[in-house]
Each structure stands twice: as C-alpha cells, then as structure tokens.
Simulated scan of single mutants.
Amino acid sequence: MPTNVLVAYGTTNGSTAEIAETIAEVLRKDGLTARARPARSVPTAAAYDAVVVGGGLYAGRWHKDARRFVRYHRKALAERPLWLFSSGPLDALAYARDIPPVRDVHKVMVRLEVREHVTFGGCLREGAHGWIARMILRGGQGGDFRDFDQIRAWAARIGHELTG
C-alpha cells in the first residue's frame, strides 16, 4: 500500500498552492504521509509512493513548473500512481461541468498512466503578479472560484484508493 504521497504544484500567485495543501491535508487525515511542495523544489519523485501534480492554467497552458516537473520526472511517475489537477477558470464553469484537460495535460495523460485529472475553479486576487492578471482584475474578472468541498472530496477519493 502506498503511504508516502507527494502533491507537487506549479503556481504563480499562490492559489494552486492552497489547493495542493488542502489535498495533502485530506490525505494525511486518511492516514497517509502527504507533503505539498512546489514542483520546482522537488529533487526526485522516486522518493514517493504516489504523486499528485497540479498546475494553474494561464492562457490555456498548464503552469510551466508543473510541465517541467512531469517531463523531468516522467520515468519515476510512470512507475507509481499518478493524479493530475488544474486550477484556473475564473467563473463557476469548473463546478458546472467537467472541463477537459488542456493540451499540455492531455499529453501527460497519454504518455503516463494517469488515474484521473480534474479542473478546479481558479482564484485571482488584487495584487496578483503578471500583466495579464492585472488586466483581468481591471476588467472585473477576478475572484475566488475554488470549491474546497469539491477539492476535499476529490482528495478523499485518492486517499480511499490508496488505502483501500
């Protein structure tokens, strides 16, 4: 039974990190050792029994740190249970229906045996980094569209699958 789980993430403004921390917290409550870490700071995925990788969506692309992480660690990821998540839509669309993975994520799903991918709503707050983020906020499109009940439920399914 896998017990040591990595939740690696790529984020620019921190909202994807908050999702990753929530996932790790739920997994710990299920009796697993789970750690959320920025994808760029993980030296090896081989030290973990299972992996969850998440990335924020920016202009239809998965965060560069998440993309680089799966590319660099692809051999280790192919040998362990793997789940993916994206965060990004700045509206209620993420809980209204399943959103298909963006191209970057779809490629990973084809190359590796990904158990599941889900897209959660995103969050963009005042003070966000980046020109595009500031333009979105000026246009009144910011806000927090994450559904933490949905995030916790998804993490619980992963935990049950790993401990089941």
Score class of each variant (00 low, 15 high):
T3N: 05
N4T: 08
L6W: 04
V7E: 02
V7T: 04
A8K: 03
G10E: 08
G10Q: 06
G10I: 00
T12L: 15
T12H: 03
A17G: 04
E18K: 01
A20T: 01
A20E: 03
A20G: 03
E21T: 02
T22R: 05
V26T: 09
L27T: 01
K29L: 03
D30K: 14
L32Q: 02
T33Q: 14
T33A: 14
A34T: 13
R35K: 12
R35Y: 13
R37H: 07
S41M: 14
S41Y: 09
V42H: 01
P43S: 14
P43W: 10
T44S: 12
T44L: 05
A46K: 07
Y48W: 13
D49F: 10
D49G: 05
A50V: 08
V52Q: 02
G55S: 06
L57P: 10
Y58R: 07
A59T: 06
A59W: 11
G60N: 06
R61Q: 12
K64N: 15
K64V: 08
R67F: 05
R68D: 15
R68Q: 15
R68H: 09
F69A: 00
R71K: 15
R71N: 09
Y72F: 13
H73L: 10
K75T: 05
L77K: 00
L77Y: 05
L77V: 00
A78Q: 06
E79N: 04
R80N: 02
P81D: 05
P81C: 00
L82T: 05
F85L: 06
S86V: 04
S86P: 11
S87R: 09
G88M: 11
P89G: 07
L90N: 09
D91R: 05
A92C: 08
A92I: 08
L93K: 09
A96V: 13
R97Y: 12
R97F: 10
R97V: 10
D98H: 10
I99T: 13
I99H: 09
V102Y: 04
D104I: 07
D104M: 06
D104N: 05
D104S: 03
H106M: 10
K107Y: 13
K107L: 14
M109K: 12
M109Q: 15
V110D: 15
V110Y: 01
V110E: 15
R111S: 11
L112T: 01
E113K: 13
R115S: 11
H117R: 07
H117V: 04
V118Q: 15
T119A: 13
F120T: 02
G121W: 03
G121D: 02
R125K: 11
R125N: 10
A128M: 00
A128E: 01
A128D: 03
H129R: 12
G130P: 03
I132N: 09
A133V: 01
A133Y: 08
R134H: 06
M135Q: 09
I136Q: 11
Q141M: 11
Q141V: 09
G142T: 14
G142W: 15
D144T: 06
F145P: 07
D147E: 03
D147V: 06
F148N: 04
D149T: 08
Q150M: 10
I151T: 09
R152Q: 14
A156C: 07
R157W: 04
R157D: 11
I158D: 02
I158T: 05
H160N: 13
H160S: 15
H160T: 12
E161I: 14
T163Y: 11
T163G: 12
